[in-house]
């Protein structure tokens, strides 16, 4: 097993723990924005798509890359924008009578 792979597995396992730690602190109030926002983050595949679309080898791999760029960009732009739109609606009360 090469060093690169071992490092990737380290990263993978540690990310699992970070993920569970960070996400379990998000309250149910924000679970929908959490889903759309984390969804946008999973659009990070865009990075891979860009390389596939831009390598200039021509042929099918570039076309696949371009389609990948399109769907990944929909995922990223759509995800972050809709999350922002939703979070903009969450406001604190200013009128509620003090108890």
């Amino acid at each position: 097993m090469d060093v690169m792979l071992m490092m990737s597995i380290y990263v993978f396992v540690l990310a699992i723990f970070v993920g569970f730690e960070v996400i379990s602190k998000v309250p149910p109030l924000l679970h929908t924005p959490l889903m759309s926002g984390s969804n946008a983050i999973s659009g990070i595949t865009l990075v891979g798509s860009l390389i596939a679309a831009g390598e200039g080898h021509g042929g099918i791999s570039v076309i696949l890359g371009m389609i990948a760029v399109i769907v990944a960009t929909i995922n990223v732009i759509g995800g972050f924008m809709v999350t922002d739109r939703m979070l903009g609606m969450f406001k604190k009360d200013t009128t509620k009578p003090a108890k």
Partner: peptide, 27 residues
Amino acid sequence: AAATGFVLGNNVLIVSGTLVGASGIIL
């Protein structure tokens, strides 16, 4: 996304994909 990260040897894909994977499992 995480699996694709392993294909490309790209750690940022692995981290982000795994975060989202964990989030989905919790929900």
